[in-house]
Amino acid sequence: MDSYFSILLTEVYKILFLLVPVLVSVAMIVWLDRRVWAFVQKRRGPNVVGPFGLFQSLADALKYIFKEIIIPASSNKLVFVLAPIVTMTLALISWAVIPFGEDFVLADINVGILYLFAVSSLGVYGIIMGGWASNSKYPFLGAIRSAAQMVSYEVSIGVIIINVLLCVGSLNLSDIVMAQQNLWFVIPLFPMFVIFFISALAETNRPPFDLPEAEAELVAGYQTEYSGMMYAMFWLGEYANILLMCAMGSILFLGGWFSPIDIFPFNAVPGPFWLMFKILFLFILFALVKATVPRYRYDQLMKLGWKIFLPFSLFYVVLTSSFLIYFDLLPGK
């Protein structure tokens, strides 16, 4: 019994060691997102609270905590309260399998990439539950839109992952990174990287695919009836998901914890920092896209997902596998 307890304690300690930095960086990237956005549009952005406005997210969080949580009278109360919790939990549990370095991972499971994919496909439930439980038209429309959108783009993300897996021969995330020691997959699979990036935008409901919360049509989509801390949880979950997608992109295509070139000043930087740089790089790309591109129309979004991305990535699967077989490069033989 004592050993169980000590195992439990060390695991809790490890989880805290992982989650606290993730939550802090979520707060920081909210600030970064707004700063980049403002920078592109020649505004200042949040620059008042703390140095460079760094504590803006903290101030926002305090505001959210002290605001009243309003639960609509006609809502389905249990589901209404559960929805933000589901979103937040799902956004956080996927970090368990992200490898920050060699043997520097909380749960080194065999099917890591499938786990990531499964958890991100569950993410749609937070939104559907929130939209349905609000018992109001705008949230419901937003939830339906986002369900269709996330399911559609998941398909193309799945096919893109197959492309990477063909080159690796393992579902373990550490193996995926190790396979990129000499050549990052972004080079041979560049089209897939572009499609992954765009699908990740759609999967996380970021502009230009933020139709579930298109304020001109749906007020705030599924979040319309939420207030105070519950709204903040949706928001945090969304940003944690964005960070996670960036991490997934850096692991699948940008060589995870490896430095770009294996020479002295670069390879002296520890692996986790490289992963963070890559995540930050992808996130700044996300923010730049948000600042520059106008919102898609819904039929265009569906057309892009099903008629362009899916056939193209399927074609690329055939291309990758034929290439690997022809040149006898198939891994795991």
Binding site: N110, Y115, F117, A118, V119, Y125
Partner: peptide, 17 residues
Amino acid sequence: EFLGMIMLIVYVGAVAV
């Protein structure tokens, strides 16, 4: 674990949605 994850992806992630 493979079956478990596929169950999550296919049934929970797509069919049940």
